[in-house]
């Protein structure tokens, strides 16, 4: 698949993003069509995330949007990795939407940000995924190569 297909779509998305973004989502950088960063924050006052802003990194392959982008949280001094039972402390996100099976080409950067935003808003558990420590220490795989089991539909 040619790069141009992805680029064309990303150019359109960028145009739309530059015009307007939903509240709580901000574009930080989009220098090229390989990698973008955005900031998201939770809009209500969920005590878990009050006053926090989180940095998201999107990596686009040549097959975007047919295949999902790689989306992770980035840890910076003023941008913590949100605590959530589906977010590992190294920023890797376990969300079916971002996997081969759950992804649909109709999704886009904005919709992914909104999904993550609402995933945080709805969360009440102050915890990491089970086995976080072991996973973070042992994982050498790219997020797309990890076989997540999407078994938990409650959060």
């Amino acid at each position: 698949m040619s790069r141009s297909f992805a680029n064309k779509r990303l150019a359109k998305e960028l145009q739309k993003i530059n015009n307007s973004l939903p509240p709580g989502i901000e574009l930080v950088s989009a220098e090229n069509f390989d990698e973008w960063t955005l900031d998201i924050r939770v809009l209500d006052d969920n005590p878990l995330y009050r006053g926090q802003i989180h940095r998201l990194k999107f990596k686009f392959g040549t097959t975007y949007p047919i295949e999902p982008p790689e989306v992770t949280f980035v840890n910076l001094p003023d941008r913590p990795i949100p605590i959530h039972p589906h977010i590992y402390s190294n920023g890797i996100i376990c969300l079916d939407l971002l996997g081969q099976q759950g992804w649909s080409p109709v999704q886009n950067v904005e919709s992914v940000c909104m999904s993550l935003q609402s995933m945080l808003t709805g969360n009440t558990k102050n915890e990491r995924p089970p086995g976080d420590e072991e996973f973070v220490r042992g994982n050498r795989l790219r997020p797309k190569d990890i076989d997540f089991l999407y078994h938990d539909n409650t959060v």
Partner: peptide, 9 residues
């Protein structure tokens, strides 16, 4: 018992 969490290939 089904294991939970990620299972690396």
């Amino acid at each position: 018992a089904a294991s939970s969490g990620p299972s690396n290939r």
